[in-house]
Amino acid sequence: MVDVTASHQRTASASDYLALLKPRVMSLVVFTGLVGYVAAPGAGDWVLGFAAVFAIAIAAGASGALNMWYDSDIDLIMTRTRSRPIPSGRIDREEALMMGLTLSALSVVTMYLAAGALAAGLLAFTIFFYAVVYTMWLKRATPQNIVIGGLAGALPPAIAWAAKTGSLGIDPLLLVAIIFFWTPPHFWALSLLQKDDYAAAKVPMLPVTHGAQATRVQIFAYSLLVAPLAVTPVLTGLGNMIYAAVSVLGGAMFVFLAYRVLRSKAGEGIAADDKRARDLFGFSILYLFMLFAVIFIERGFA
């Protein structure tokens, strides 16, 4: 019998594995999924509702782990992602892959048990879309990566809606559309500030391929799309009076901040102008949170 020393340290802690699941992305997905479940018609069942939202959370975590497995090479180059568990050497790539695949399977099975085939199918599609279509294909291939790939992050309210009702309709699709069109200006505001990082990693983000000016125009164009779109739930009855006020005022503020970015030199290394992109990024999170929080309150306590 030969005694050998471990080839490398394996001292990863639970928090490293948690980091692999991208908890901040998970929290947003859980929130929008919860709102989708509460907003859907019917009384629902709190155990099945919890299971459905939990399955969405686990699926988001699984997608995050698969993304970190595949992107560990570029994560090592970019400052923002260098300290993630794989590039920092705390977790093996293979371990992340196995964790991602296992959690994917568990989340889809849980959703199927709790809510049936439609919600489970949508959940499986979302994981596939994020891990394969976005991460493996679009992200390194086109500056439209986050536009198309944003669908994966937009689907949770519809999945939760389908989990409660067994069907889809115009209201859940509106919620999906709001997140879908909100994603590009939100993400591009951040990527304007991290242009050099993306360029070093050879990720074709819009500011890298088309420059800061074109990105600022696109941000403004999308803000003009998302602001009126966010008001439309009032027309279908999904949103009431408070929602109308919040969506109109929030949308106006969003367009105003996007206009400030358009008129600035954000992304060109001028600190004062970069701040405008940072302001838009910060407000975009608050804006989406407010829209969904109001729907949660209006529908949940109606």
């Binding site: 030969v2 005694d3 050998v4 020393t5 471990a6 340290q9 802690s13 639970a14 594995y17």
Partner: peptide, 21 residues
């Protein structure tokens, strides 16, 4: 021929924590 891996106390502790989670 059998091979065993000797873990350091730190690695053992980490493994125990992982197993518990």
């Amino acid at each position: 021929m059998n091979e065993t891996v000797t873990l350091t106390p730190e690695e053992l502790k980490a493994r125990k924590r992982r197993n518990m989670w």
